[in-house]
Design a protein around this nucleic acid. Sequence first.
DNA 1: CATAACTTTGCAACAGAGTTGCAAATATTT
DNA 2: AAATATTTGCAACTCTGTTGCAAAGTTATG
Lengths: 138, 138
Amino acid sequence: MDNLIDDMLKSNNLSITGSRKKILEIFFSSNGALAHGDIEKRTSEKFDRVTVYRTLQTFLEKGIIHTIPTADNAIRYALCKDSCGEGHHHDNHVHFICSGCNITICLEDVLIPSVRLPFGFVAEEQQMVVKGVCKDCK
Amino acid sequence: MDNLIDDMLKSNNLSITGSRKKILEIFFSSNGALAHGDIEKRTSEKFDRVTVYRTLQTFLEKGIIHTIPTADNAIRYALCKDSCGEGHHHDNHVHFICSGCNITICLEDVLIPSVRLPFGFVAEEQQMVVKGVCKDCK
DNA sequence: CATAACTTTGCAACAGAGTTGCAAATATTT
DNA sequence: AAATATTTGCAACTCTGTTGCAAAGTTATG
């Protein structure tokens, strides 16, 4: 497990540091998406806020994590499935937010359906968020 | 025009005040969705920041406007079409953000397609945002 | 394996978005 | 026109995120 994380960092040309390892571990051991605040809570005051922000930013740039749009004004992050090439991650799946436990889940198998736009509009990227009750809260 | 706005406020049990009239006017005269900051700019320093926030909050509660989810961490608001009853607005249309002029538009005629969720998940509400180029920037 | 070169961290300070309490001002009711 | 209720503006605050810079840590080099 530790080796997997080290390799992951190394293959992205990132120095292997305590905070990066810890934050990656948190992502691996959580089944949903995480907001910056969630991560701060789970690192139990070990790292500076700024370090967490910068680490997330770095992971984002390297395509290790991706962002999830939410209406509640807090960016959430989730691990990318390593099925696609580095850098250009295809984030074309639906995200689910449970109104019970508030978890945010990537529904990797549920693809965003395409819509027919009015004449003159060209789509480049689309995001879909479904709110409801997850299988554990039912 | 002034009467329409007054009636709109009155029928929602809201006092008719300068800031509310002005902010409603701004919504009527803009063709896209507005963030809090946009509104502040267009009121040209006439009202307090807090008043704008509270007015938007009030309009939201009364179902006069609705929020639009964006990835860039700023809530945007748009007028609700008055086709549906008071309070319970059906916000089931797609939103479009232009990467050229950055406008956010409600595509009232483009309904969000429903998706098949994994077993055990129940959808209550869904939001879809398409980014691309609008008809004026093409 | 020590030293140099580079990268990352933590601190401090800041910026922007949004909220709350409260007294003053403005609307509405009578 | 006075009494009541609602709304506004101010001040102060919280929360989220960013930037510059020196200190500490990591990696590469001889």
